[in-house]
Computed example of a mutant assay.
Amino acid sequence: MRLGWRWCLGHRHVARGFAARCGPLCLCGARRCPSVSDQTRARIHPPSVPPAQQEASPDAAAPSPLELRNRQLARASVDSAQVILMDRYRLRSPEDAFTLLRSASQHFNIKLHTVAELVARIAGPDIQDGLWFPRRPRTAAPALPGLGVARDGQQSHSAVLKAGLHRVLHITDTGMGNVQLVGNGMLRLEKHTGLNREFTDFFAFVHDAGTACAQAARQRQQVTVKNVESADVFDEDSRHAILQAGSRAAHSLPLIGRAGQVLGIISSHHEKTLRGFSQTQLTALAATGAAVGRWLHWHRQTVVLDALEHLHAQATGTNGKGPDRPQ
Rank of each mutant, 00 (worst) to 15 (best):
I265F: 01
I265T: 06
I266H: 03
I266W: 05
S268C: 07
H269I: 12
H269Y: 10
H270Q: 06
H270A: 09
K272F: 14
K272R: 11
T273K: 15
T273W: 09
L274T: 10
L274A: 08
L274S: 01
F277N: 12
F277Y: 14
S278T: 11
S278C: 04
Q279S: 11
Q279K: 08
Q279C: 15
T280P: 13
T280D: 15
Q281R: 13
Q281G: 10
L282V: 12
L282R: 08
T283Q: 13
A284F: 06
L285S: 03
L285M: 01
A286Q: 10
A287E: 01
T288A: 02
T288D: 01
T288I: 07
G289F: 00
G289S: 00
A290G: 03
V292I: 01
V292F: 03
R294C: 04
W295D: 11
L296F: 02
H297Y: 10
H299R: 13
H299E: 04
R300G: 05
R300K: 14
Q301G: 09
V303E: 05
V303C: 03
V303W: 02
V304I: 13
L305N: 04
L305S: 12
D306Y: 06
D306W: 04
D306R: 13
L308M: 09
H312I: 11
A313T: 03
A313R: 00
Q314F: 03
Q314V: 02
T316K: 00
